[in-house]
Design a protein around this nucleic acid. Structure first.
Length: 411
RNA sequence: CGGGGAGUAGCGCAGUUGGCUAGCGCGCUUGCUUUGGGAGCAAGAGGUCGAGAGUUCAAAUCUCUCCUCCCCGACCA
């Protein structure tokens, strides 16, 4: 991608009314744009990150045998009445009447919808287990939005739902999800705190939360300094012993639901003995858009974002210091072709801007690897490669740039 | 919803004891010079001062109502 032809509206100044680092940087780096409080557009750079995170999630979900589908965001309120959650979720639900006078809502979550689908088609124990998931926009009329994309009214979530014959199957699926979650977050460059938690409005018994320690966190946990045990901070009372309190933000939550939804919606199957039984359910969520904010929150410095390599909008940025210098640009073009052929996503800053601005923009958008082509170095047939994460500079011969990039990328 | 802050050009801000044609920086347009850390000179474009009502000879500035955004509390991914 050529920067001059792309759409990366970076901001030099800190946008007014932004406190959280991730909020500032996501606006300054041109990742997102606010329409109204809690409602954001994903600009091309932000959308690239989003897509990469989604693909990691897809890979890990598919790897444990889940099947992707897409459910509607628009729901008749009637289905919510069947579980009584039209009342329990009343505060966050966005509701309205359509022109026929039918009461509708925008889906805040999808247990009811998925259960309704499975109810229609799953009739036998032979069709179980099955786990379905989607990556989709959720709508919650938050009383208070917060920190840009962190708590939004419209946000992107991965939600998976498992259906089993018995508790044993549920436990197996639950563990698979738990392990997949560990892999997903790790690939996104996040160090997670996993803690068992309350099920809240979801119902069910067992649940685990996946949190990231960050100053903007809305939750807190106690970590035992001796044995590493972690418990949720419920009421602020410090537990007995050697504990440390950590503020953290929740990115994922998985639940063993049991039969709460299958029972109220009539999702049953016939077992081997011909007996009718409710399907045993689990549900597994990840706040995809929030995850991006959390990544920025824990991976930045004074100059900008430092993307983990798997979810960076580009793998490499090529930065010819002087776009007017034909030798520099010819080399930039050469690396661009080579690296793209090697399967990398490459951004070439071909803008005829001052060096300072190009360097600052590069730091801001935080591409992991940067190739700097300047006249001064080029006089000695040399080109620099700079690592965003630690500022380390590797000077290489101009003919070895692409090989060196491919090597550095694997580190 | 309760408490606190803020709305003036695309962005960041000044101007607010009522008084000249509403200003500064960045960005944007044109030209020339520049180009290793947000360049220089010159000439330009860009505004219902959040909205409505009121007071006044006169309102960005005073009064009332409303709207929006941000931060702190109860909920959540």
């Amino acid at each position: 991608m050529y920067w001059s032809k792309y759409f990366i509206p970076t901001l030099k100044e800190v946008p007014a009314g932004t406190e959280a680092v991730s909020h500032r940087l996501s606006l300054r780096a041109g990742l997102v744009n606010m329409l109204t409080s809690g409602v954001y557009s994903y600009l091309p750079l932000g959308y690239r990150v989003l897509s990469r995170v989604e693909n990691i999630i897809r890979e890990e979900m598919n790897a444990i045998g889940c099947h992707e589908l897409l459910m509607p965001a628009l729901h008749p309120i009637d289905i919510w009445k069947k579980t009584g959650r039209d009342a329990t979720l009343k505060e966050v639900m966005i509701t309205f009447d359509n022109k026929k006078g039918q009461r509708m809502c925008l889906g805040p979550t999808h247990e009811e919808i998925i259960t309704d689908i499975v109810r229609q088609f799953v009739k036998s124990y032979r069709q179980l287990p099955v786990t379905l998931y989607q990556i989709q926009t959720k709508f919650r009329d938050e009383i208070r939005t917060r920190f840009g994309i962190v708590r939004a009214c419209e946000f992107i979530m991965k939600d998976a739902y498992s259906f089993d014959r018995d508790g044993e199957g549920l436990k197996k699926n639950y563990d698979l999800q738990l392990q997949a979650y560990q892999r997903i977050f790790k690939r996104c460059g996040l160090e997670m705190i996993v803690v068992s938690a309350d099920s809240g409005a979801m119902g069910g018994s067992v649940s685990h939360e996946f949190l990231v320690a960050a100053p903007i966190g809305e939750d807190a946990v106690w970590v035992n300094k001796d044995d590493g045990r972690i418990i949720k901070d419920e009421e602020g009372k410090e537990p007995q012993g050697n504990w440390e309190r950590k503020v953290a933000i929740e990115l994922g939550h998985i639940f063993q639901l049991g039969t709460k939804y299958s029972q109220s919606l009539g999702a049953t199957f016939l077992d081997e003995n011909g007996q009718t039984k409710p399907i045993i359910m689990g549900c597994y969520g990840i706040g995809v858009s929030r995850l991006i904010a959390a990544v920025i929150e824990v991976n930045n410095d004074a100059e900008g974002i430092i993307w983990p390599k798997e979810i960076a909008p580009f793998d490499v940025e090529i930065l010819p210091v002087q776009a007017s210098d034909s030798a520099s640009m010819a080399l930039a073009e050469k690396y661009y072709q080579e690296l793209r052929q090697a399967g990398l996503e490459v951004l070439l800053d071909d803008r005829d801007e001052s060096a300072g601005r190009k360097f600052n923009d590069a730091d801001l958008i935080g591409i992991p690897l940067r190739v700097i082509i300047g006249k001064r170095m080029l006089a000695h047939n040399q080109v620099e490669i700079k690592l965003r994460r630690n500022g380390q500079v590797v000077v290489v011969n101009k003919d070895e740039v692409s090989q060196e990039i491919l090597k550095l990328r694997t580190l």
